[in-house]
Each structure stands twice: as structure tokens, then as C-alpha cells.
């Protein structure tokens, strides 16, 4: 198989005009779904993720209940129209894996022991996808969980770093991901710098890995501030409506 080499960096800039350490533009909206207990819409460049949280509610079937804590489920799902070639609907090997690692990235911050025997269900739908969807999903889910009033230690923020044309860069888009040398999604608690998810596809040298992780940490702090602001603004907005 022969692949045409694509030049990913031109004149020190990336294809979409970003610098190496730039995030794509982010937009966060809280409480977009009326019937969900908590919800959040999260945009990261061309990624559009919608998270809905239901619960704590009765866990069914009964034998899956945990007498001591709540059980968290996480469903990551890509819409058939979210990518260029239609994605075959339904769970596949990839989305099962993403669901699992995403759940485990949020698990440590949720204070599950406050709601024994219940279920906390998180559904994340990707309406449009442009690489880094699992990180967008985790960011959305974390805000939606807080909005649902679920007791948590912290919010989780997530971002990916990668390597293109030999350079370590932040937040790959689809072209960079497909033609780059490495991709490493990271999820972490910004306050304590605790990493709750770390995956890597491709190769980094030890030095590149450390530089990448540092980049990701810095970006997670930025995203955390945006998540926090979105939640607090949601509240002040509803105050404004009340005062009409």
C-alpha cells in the first residue's frame, strides 16, 4: 500500500492555522436536554458531543445492583452521519472500548457511596466527529454529571496530544490523526493533576512523551476553567430570567 505523504506543518503552522500548542475552539452549553437529569453540549472544533445523565435511579436488572455503591454506566456512540463514510450504527469494538475507558476516567471522581443500589447512566452521542471525540465526550459527561446534582470530588477534563511531522502538538484533528505518528488522549482532574485516563496510539520517545503530557496538563487546566465557567454562567443566566 502506497500512501501519499501529506505535509502537516507549513511555515511553522498546522493545516488549520493553529500553533503547536493551540486547542481548537471550545463551546459548552449546560442543560440542553429537558428530560435528562443533567446534560451538556460540548463542541471542540468540528467535534460535537451531546452528553445526558440519568439517575441516580433504580438499577435493573436487580442482580447488577451493588449494595454499597451506585453503578455507573457509560455509553459512547457515534451517529452514522458523524463521519465522512457512513458509520455502521450500533456498538462496535471501538466504541465498546471507548465507553469503558471513558467510564473509568470519570469513576474516581464520582462519590458513588452516597447512592447505594442505584444506577447512574451516562449517554454520550457524537453528532459530528473530527478526532478527539472521546476527550470531547468525557468533558461533556463530566459537566452533565455535575449538572445532574451527582456528588463528585472534582470535574474531569480531557484532551489529546500527538506527534505530526516529528513535532509534539496539542489536540489533533482528523487529518493530523490519520497521517500523524502518534496520538495520546489524556483525562485528568485539573485541581490535583491526577491522571484518570491515558492511552497512546503510535510512538513517542520518552522525552516527547513527557513534553506531550506537560502540554496536555496545561490544556486540561484551560478546559477545566471553561467547564467551570459554563456551569456557573448557567446559574447566573437563570437568575437573569427570573428577574424579568
Amino acid at each position: 500500500m502506497k500512501e501519499e505523504k501529506i505535509e502537516l506543518i507549513k511555515d511553522g503552522k498546522r493545516l488549520d492555522g493553529r500553533d503547536f500548542e493551540d486547542l481548537r475552539p471550545i463551546k459548552i452549553e449546560v442543560g440542553v436536554l429537558k428530560r435528562a437529569d443533567g446534560s451538556c453540549y460540548f463542541e471542540l472544533g468540528n467535534n460535537k458531543a451531546l452528553a445526558a445523565v440519568y439517575g441516580p435511579r433504580e438499577k435493573h436488572p436487580r442482580h447488577l445492583q451493588d449494595a454499597k455503591t451506585a453503578v455507573v454506566t457509560y455509553r459512547y456512540n457515534m451517529a452514522p452521519f458523524s463521519v465522512d463514510d457512513r458509520k455502521r450504527p450500533g456498538p462496535d469494538r471501538r466504541s465498546v472500548e471507548v465507553s469503558k475507558v471513558s467510564r473509568e476516567s470519570l469513576d474516581p471522581v464520582i462519590l458513588k457511596e452516597y447512592y447505594p443500589k442505584t444506577a447512574i447512566d451516562v449517554y454520550v452521542e457524537l453528532l459530528q466527529s473530527d478526532a478527539g471525540t472521546r476527550t470531547a465526550g468525557i468533558n461533556a459527561a463530566s459537566v452533565a454529571l455535575a449538572a445532574a446534582g451527582i456528588p463528585m470530588r472534582d470535574l474531569v477534563s480531557s484532551v489529546a496530544v500527538g506527534k505530526i511531522d516529528g513535532e509534539v502538538v496539542l489536540d489533533l484533528n482528523a487529518v493530523e490523526d490519520n497521517h500523524g505518528e502518534a496520538d495520546m488522549p489524556v483525562a485528568m482532574v485539573a485541581r490535583t493533576d491526577t491522571i484518570t485516563m491515558l492511552q497512546m496510539d503510535g510512538r513517542f520517545t520518552k522525552d516527547e512523551f513527557e513534553r506531550g503530557l506537560k502540554l496536555a496538563k496545561k490544556a486540561c487546566h484551560e478546559i477545566y476553567e471553561l467547564q467551570r465557567t459554563a456551569l456557573i454562567e448557567k446559574y447566573s443566566k437563570s437568575v437573569g430570567e427570573g428577574e424579568e
Binding site: A146, M152, R153, D154, L155, Q227, L231, I232, S236
Partner: peptide, 8 residues
């Protein structure tokens, strides 16, 4: 004062 989880 509004807070989010993890706020000091």
C-alpha cells in the same frame, strides 16, 4: 456563591 464540584 455558586460552586462546582472540587471548588475550594
Amino acid at each position: 456563591k455558586v460552586v462546582v464540584p472540587g471548588d475550594f
